[in-house]
Design a protein around this nucleic acid. Sequence first.
DNA 1: CGGTTCCTTGAGGATGATCAACGAGGGTGG
DNA 2: CCACCCTCGTTGATCATCCTCAAGGAACCG
Lengths: 197, 197
Amino acid sequence: MQIDLDLLYSWGAVAKKYKKNEIVFDEDEAALFYYQILDGSVRMYNSNDEGKEFTQGIFCNGDGFGEPPLFIDETYPSKAITIQDSTIIKLSKDKFLKILDESPSVQKYFLILLARKIHSKSKTSKEIINQKPEFRIIAFLNSFKKKYGNTNDKVLIPYTRQEIANYTGLRVETVIRAFAKLSDCNKVEIINHKIYY
Amino acid sequence: MQIDLDLLYSWGAVAKKYKKNEIVFDEDEAALFYYQILDGSVRMYNSNDEGKEFTQGIFCNGDGFGEPPLFIDETYPSKAITIQDSTIIKLSKDKFLKILDESPSVQKYFLILLARKIHSKSKTSKEIINQKPEFRIIAFLNSFKKKYGNTNDKVLIPYTRQEIANYTGLRVETVIRAFAKLSDCNKVEIINHKIYY
DNA sequence: CGGTTCCTTGAGGATGATCAACGAGGGTGG
DNA sequence: CCACCCTCGTTGATCATCCTCAAGGAACCG
């Protein structure tokens, strides 16, 4: 689900290439563009002075990201960087808002999109506050599975332990020890250091 | 900001009275109605088996709540109860969605509303993960102040320490000790057990 | 083969949670 | 008016857990 590419281009959107680890926008920056990924992936996250990070979201092919501030004249609450070489379509804020005004179906689409994001953020906060590390990790794994085809088979989790730590607000070592426990009680399978869930 | 009352009534919305501590909807329940508070207040929260709670949001006069699941056919991620005697307007899901379809301005209003909620949830997650108890509490105080008239004067915080604990995912004792520290370094003022910020 | 990056383990420390107890204030009914 | 019982705030001691730090091993890639 995304805004139709032809529609974007017809409004003057341009595709820009980014190298891996390039900053797309920074925390507290004013929101000036709508971004949609043509190819590659982007991580939105916060970090504090001690270098601890929290990943707000990971976005891939076809996903738009960083839209909420466009609607409310707020700055970005987090920073966005590419985690691979990527191609991202940019459209200026006013044109983006114009598309919305002119197309009820696009507007409705964004309503649904935002509703979905709130729902998942609500679930995340709930898990984070309440639970032990293992629960947080399981919650992360579930959200991953939900997003990328919910098969009943075990799937390979394509994240490093550090990345999972950043996503869950834990430390690498804690994540590792939690996976050891989860593996003991057969909640996940670990084969050759690779995680299957 | 809210949906116009006459509009709601003209579509067949009804006002229902709730006693304090009555459940409006429960976690994992299907979302069937749009709710808007005429008078009173409502808390949305999660609790786990150990009785630990996390407050997703507090809503007052004029606020609507529990909308996101209406757009995406999901169940409620949290439970909602009244924290005072309240009067709440209910409108069935399909009529609510119809209003949206027929009124672009209402639809746009909700887009902005959802964007604002995402923004505040992003900020909340960020604070929660990263920071020490004092930071979480300050973040809570800030969000309170932002919502209710951002004066430069110190204002009385109308929450009990337990409520603040539930909101921040901490324990009462931790909240109390954190306030002691905050008071020491003049971040808040505590007069006769009442908190001013 | 050498250099990254990632994974793993252990020991020790910091901190928030837990438990237990008590105080202060407000409301209620006898 | 007083005794009682709420709820809320407070404190200290102890515990459990995650973080930190340090070190080394495994996998991968040019």
